[in-house]
Design a protein around this nucleic acid. Structure first.
Lengths: 239, 239
DNA sequence: GCGCGCATTAATGAATGCATTAATTGCGGC
DNA sequence: GCCGCAATTAATGCATTCATTAATGCGCGC
């Protein structure tokens, strides 16, 4: 399940029907609603009734409801009878929670990748993403940096080969996505980013699982702490 | 969200309607179907059509379908058009995957608990579960041991206070539950179990986060390895 | 203006109906 | 008996309908 164009900008690993790749209406609704949330069209706290969504997506309420149930299970929305779905805001404490779990999961992913070993092509992919990050920073293009950063992490987690870990990480990314994008221009320049990622790639290339894990956990922990402090300092509680 | 009687034997943190605690039919269907899976009534590979489930649960297909979608998202079943839902079997490699993620998450939970500190009452709860495990082992009652073990882990993860971590761990527990129960009488006597859990409680009581994490990760890693080896050795691939 | 009670409205959960089509069955030919 | 094809059946996805009831609006009294 690779991201399609529909998922551009998102690390979501959408679940689709098992038997065929023909998208049913529920899948369409899920993808469309999720996109609205991830790209900020539906901001934190926004509500949308089943019938509104159905009208907007030009389908009946049945597939829309299924989509909303799925989004609820992913922690993206809450569903309140007579109020439809409401996009769950992300507070600083949510972010702390997300990053605590992400640190554990991605650290494990890094360790698994190092243990499994990595092909030259895969290594080139990771190094390529690091190079993209460097290029972006030289141009002071934070947006491109974020995209390259995301690409790096996506490759990394995928390489772990643990489907459950991949799914869970994807879910957390989606929950944090909007807040990360909204704070992108507010955060300090990630000047150590390139070095940290490169160190991780080195540890992986050396097959050093414990080191890869530590390097990556430290990286994720620092990023999380930075974001949480930023949200706290700016009093941003509903992103 | 505490386990209700309906969830006895399961660590599932079921998601219910937000606004009221009045269970709607979809919630009922979800709980009932999940119970059938967890208690082995619906074994690995078992299929159940929407209409069969609807008939059995004495409701229409609509809430049944929602329940199946939720179970699918939790990794408990797959849904194949015209074949209904099928209970996903757990293989040795699935178990390896589950335990790799559980080790990461529960290790983090242990660290969080130690960092947050713990009340005397909470400490007594954990020690109580350890004592229950000891009592069960003295009686060679593996079933009681498993229940006490599960209670310990449930307390531990809850005490982390990280709702996302709690939900994810619960999901993995549910996926592994049937396989763990089915192999309970096949596995070696968990003779180090009491000591390992007691060591963990000591680390937590001492507020030693890194130590708690390490003790618990080692514990979980060993348990996972033991189970995976057991499944491999016995050629059990569809539990 | 405010609060309360009643009437009305609308959103949902669930049931039902329908169109689509995958799966099964039956038949004929070899 | 086996295979292929056509007909039939049945499971699903989806749309529509209906009953329930929470939410809203309105009117009245203070």
């Amino acid at each position: 399940m690779l991201p399609t164009e529909k998922d551009a900008g998102s690390a979501s690993m959408s679940q689709v029907s098992t038997s065929t790749e023909r998208a049913n209406q529920a899948d369409v609704a899920y993808g469309r609603l999720k996109q609205l949330i991830l790209d900020g069209t539906l901001p934190a706290g926004a509500q949308m009734l089943e019938q509104e969504a159905a009208t907007r997506l030009e389908m009946s309420r049945t597939p829309v409801r299924e989509a909303m149930v799925r989004l609820r299970q992913e922690g993206m929305v809450e569903i309140r009878p007579r109020h439809g779905m409401r996009v769950l805001p992300i507070s600083a404490s949510d972010m702390a929670e997300i990053y605590a779990v992400l640190t554990a999961l991605e650290g494990t992913a890094a360790e698994l990748v190092a243990q499994r070993g990595i092909t030259p092509r895969q290594l080139a992919q990771l190094r390529g993403a690091v190079a993209d990050m460097q290029t972006a920073l030289e141009r002071s293009d934070l947006k491109a940096w974020a995209a390259a950063d995301e690409q790096f992490h996506l490759h990394l987690v995928r390489l772990s080969g643990n489907s459950r870990l991949i799914q869970m990480v994807g879910q957390l990314w989606d929950q944090a996505h909007r807040a990360r994008m909204l704070t992108l221009q507010l955060r300090p320049t990630p000047s150590n980013s390139v070095k940290e990622h490169a160190d991780l790639v080195d540890a992986i290339a050396a097959g050093d699982g414990p080191r890869a894990r530590k390097v990556h956990e430290d990286h994720r922990r620092r990023a999380g702490t930075m974001l949480v402090d930023l949200l706290d300092r700016l009093g941003l509680n509903q992103l």
